[in-house]
């Protein structure tokens, strides 16, 4: 069973800064390809969309049960590293000794190793290693890929998954023999998971680039602190439900026909169309078809 633990409880040991300085951070927004303009302060921070946010003050993450055998990273090591990165984010001082109004729960191991968001059944926010294949064309150089699924009308985050390309990159843990440092990678990706984009502050972890072999992204800088505190200001009263949207599921959804609200897939960009959250479920359609078939059967028997 999942081992839920509030990371913030132990995170006090990891405080790395306060929210008193620079504010060059950038929130991820709903921007579509034809909707946004650059910020006056930072040309790669878009304005015009709605900021993405976690509606609950409690969120959860899971880690695929295999870890990365190829890189010698077992599940517990992966889990502890990822949990530690969230703890780092949650341990910052937003002023007066108060931390961000978010609690991150560790839901432990899951068997699902797919990036997926199910519109009708349970989900999990999964960190997974790709030891066997990397399915993205021309993307062998990518170390990790974070996918955020959200409501385009409100900006509410539905799901967040992180894939680590351990097949094509030498991912390492620890302080010796460092190559692509897992702790640095997950700290940066956790910032995206929580709703931050790149900062324009060159000192920020959410800006910084680092050389292979270094561990520079493990720590948070003042601008990162300002960003997370702006996303989750202390004292914010929101309901607490760490369950992923539509409930928690350790397993991938299968078959796909049971997972989503509709079987029709395409839509024009930005236009209301199929696959929308809140649209009527195909169960209605299936039910109606079932009733129609039963009715037809009765008529034939008469």
């Amino acid at each position: 069973m999942r081992a839920a633990s509030v990371l913030g409880l132990c995170a006090a040991l990891l405080v790395t800064g306060t929210a008193t300085s620079a504010a060059a951070f950038c929130r991820t927004t709903t921007c579509g390809p034809g909707q946004c303009t650059p910020s006056a302060d930072c040309d790669y921070c878009l304005e015009g969309g709605k900021p993405l946010f976690w509606a609950s003050r409690c969120v959860s993450f899971s880690v695929h049960q295999a870890g990365s055998p190829l890189r010698g990273i077992d599940f517990e090591t992966a889990r502890n590293t990822i949990a530690g990165s969230y703890a780092r984010w949650m341990a910052v001082d937003c002023g007066g000794g108060n931390g961000p109004s978010l609690q991150v729960y560790d839901y432990g191991a899951v068997s699902c190793n797919r990036q997926e968001y199910n519109q009708r059944v349970g989900n999990s926010n999964i960190w997974m290693f790709r030891d066997d294949y990397w399915p993205y064309v021309g993307a062998a150089s990518t170390l990790a890929l974070t996918t955020i699924t959200f409501n385009v009308k409100t900006g509410e985050i539905f799901d967040a998954d992180v894939e680590v390309n351990s097949l094509q990159n030498s991912i390492t843990v620890g302080d010796t023999g460092v190559q692509a440092d897992l702790d640095s990678i997950v700290t940066h990706e956790a910032g995206h998971f929580l709703g931050l984009s790149h900062s324009c502050d060159t000192d920020a972890t959410m800006y910084a680039s680092y050389k292979v072999g270094q561990i520079g992204l493990r720590t948070l800088e003042p601008d990162d602190v300002a960003g997370i505190c702006a996303l989750f200001p202390p004292g914010s009263e929101r309901p607490c439900s760490s369950e992923p949207r539509h409930g928690f599921s350790s397993d991938c959804c299968s078959p796909r026909s049971l997972c989503d609200r509709t079987q029709k897939d395409s839509s024009s960009c930005g236009a209301a169309a199929t696959g929308a959250e809140g649209q009527s479920s195909p169960w209605w359609l299936l039910g109606a078809l079932g009733l129609a078939a039963a009715s037809l059967g009765r008529r034939r028997r008469r």
Binding site: T142, L145, T147, G270, E277
Partner: peptide
């Protein structure tokens, strides 16, 4: 984005 559901893939090209 498809209907009300959007996906951002950090690291992918984004053509405006």
């Amino acid at each position: 984005r498809v209907g009300d559901v959007g996906q951002i893939v950090h690291g992918e090209a984004f053509l405006l």
